[in-house]
Computed example of a mutant assay.
Amino acid sequence: MRVIISAILLIFVFSNEAIKAAEIELHHNAPDHYIVVQGDTLWSIASRFLKDPWRWPEIWNQNRESMKNPHTVYPGDIIVLEKTAKGNQLKLSDEKAIIKLSPKMRIEKLGAGGIPTIPANKIKPFLSQPLVIEKHALDKAPLVLGSSDNRVILSTGETIYVRDLPHDKGSLWQVFRTSKALMDPDDNNHILGYEAIYLGDVEVKNFATISSVTVTHSVQEILNGDRLIPSPPDRDVDYGPHAPNFAIKGRIISVYGGVAEIGENAIITLNKGIHDGLKEGHVLAVYRKSEVKSPTGETVMLPDERIGLVLVFRVFDKVSYALVTQSSQAIKVLDAVKTP
């Protein structure tokens, strides 16, 4: 069985002069063509052609008349790289992609929207959690008292009781617990804030002096003494990746899950935030500082080596959270992040 998916003709034109002026470089092994598949993102497609994939918006900006919306790229479209004497052309072909399906697979109608910029499912759970707070910021939040049968550990499906729960902030809440201090290694380990760990979701059954709530979702065990924060509304996660237009240098100070080595799609914490000019959508390069022993026994510092890229998606005053989008080798806590 075959399914024919039509592609939309859309042309991006790069002259040699334009590439040089904008310093947008193609990979030496960039493919001649690529068929967009379900699950692709604009970032992942750009990574196949461009050394700096976050710069695809600049290419779009040079071609506004031919490309009204970069999200009109759909699975089945064929992206072709043409190399001519006048320069390079990257275009969506007017050819048709033929996709063969086995009899066991079902055909599903594609969504109305095109492919996203970045893998939204990777960061969406982190848009409301964890939180970065002051040391005692949760002390006045509604308090989990426990359950009627005095269970110590509370989980999904159980009814628990909460004190000081206001009735004017809705019935959906999230449960948090104050966790580790986030320290700045570049400032004598000055404390930048405290991470509040997300434990789960609850829904109010009855508002009263002592309210009853049901645990609708739990990712960790909920305990007596944990605190509640109102559930935030859903947020748009389709950021436009771009490099900061200023020089910035920070460090990775933590990784979600506490693993020692960090790879693609990991969530990391940086020691830079709003006060340093960071914004959602900023792309930073990761650098490893290395040293070797010379034949004379002297320690020699090697030039910083670029080993990855991260996308900032959530920013607080002094810290921010980022998604690792590329890594050529294992990234580690205390590696540097800089303007690419």
Rank of each mutant, 00 (worst) to 15 (best):
I248C: 11
N189E: 14
S47K: 15
L284T: 06
S155M: 04
A181H: 03
L138C: 00
L182T: 10
I253D: 01
V286Q: 08
P53K: 09
A285W: 06
G146M: 07
L182G: 02
V144T: 03
L309K: 14
L311A: 08
L302T: 14
V312P: 06
E261D: 09
L278R: 05
F126E: 07
I133C: 00
I191G: 01
G193C: 05
I11S: 14
E305M: 13
E261T: 14
Q129G: 12
H282L: 00
L323Q: 12
S254A: 06
A112G: 04
D304L: 15
M67Q: 12
K205L: 09
V237F: 09
G200F: 03
E95Y: 10
S6V: 12
R55S: 01
H27E: 11
L334F: 14
N63V: 05
Y239H: 10
S44W: 08
V37M: 04
M67G: 00
V152T: 07
T339I: 06
T269C: 09
I262D: 00
Q129D: 02
S6T: 11
D168C: 01
S212P: 08
P31A: 05
K122N: 13
T84N: 07
L199M: 12
G87R: 02
N271W: 02
D32E: 09
K51R: 15
N29M: 09
L138G: 07
E221G: 11
L192H: 01
Y74K: 15
A247G: 06
P185N: 05
G308C: 08
F316E: 11
D186K: 11
E221H: 14
V310M: 02
T325V: 12
S211L: 00
W60R: 05
A46N: 12
H190D: 06
D304W: 10
R64P: 01
R55G: 03
V144K: 07
M105Y: 12
M301S: 08
A266F: 11
V73K: 11
Q129K: 14
E17C: 02
L182Q: 03
I78S: 00
T214E: 05
D234V: 10
T41C: 05
F176V: 00
K91Q: 05
K279N: 13
R48V: 00
